[in-house]
């Protein structure tokens, strides 16, 4: 996937027991972001695979002042890419949880 300069990873081991995940997002390459953002700070949040959307979380991060509106698409894409990967892992290897 195209690099957005942002990194999203699991903040806790995925035990596949429910649809809620703990994710952590931070800026890996500040040059790739357009607006102001907080460097060296990781944002941890919960993401429900059944009810949440990456766009909605990105919007709330912009509203909370973590990122500029011009970067909300990159934030949403980073979250979407990671969530897609986690869903595939859950489908492929239930034992992987």
């Amino acid at each position: 996937a195209e690099d957005t300069g942002l990194r999203v990873e699991l903040a806790e081991e995925d035990d596949c027991s429910n649809s809620s995940l703990a994710l952590r997002l931070w800026v890996e390459d500040p040059k790739k972001l357009k607006g102001k953002h907080k460097d060296n700070e990781a944002i941890e949040f919960s993401f429900n695979l059944e009810t949440d959307t990456p766009e909605e979380v990105a919007y709330e991060m912009v509203k909370s002042g973590f990122f500029h509106e011009s970067d909300s698409k990159a934030v949403a894409k980073s979250i979407r890419d990671r969530v897609t990967l986690i869903k595939k892992t859950r489908e492929k290897k239930p034992a992987g949880c």
Partner: peptide
């Protein structure tokens, strides 16, 4: 810890903390 900040937005909780040094070196 004093380094962690909790922000609420539309019912969602964001926990802000420094990126671990080890992760910064990776990038």
């Amino acid at each position: 810890s004093s380094l962690t900040q909790v922000v609420h937005s539309a019912g969602r909780r964001f926990i802000v903390s420094p990126v671990p040094e080890s992760r910064l070196r990776e990038s």
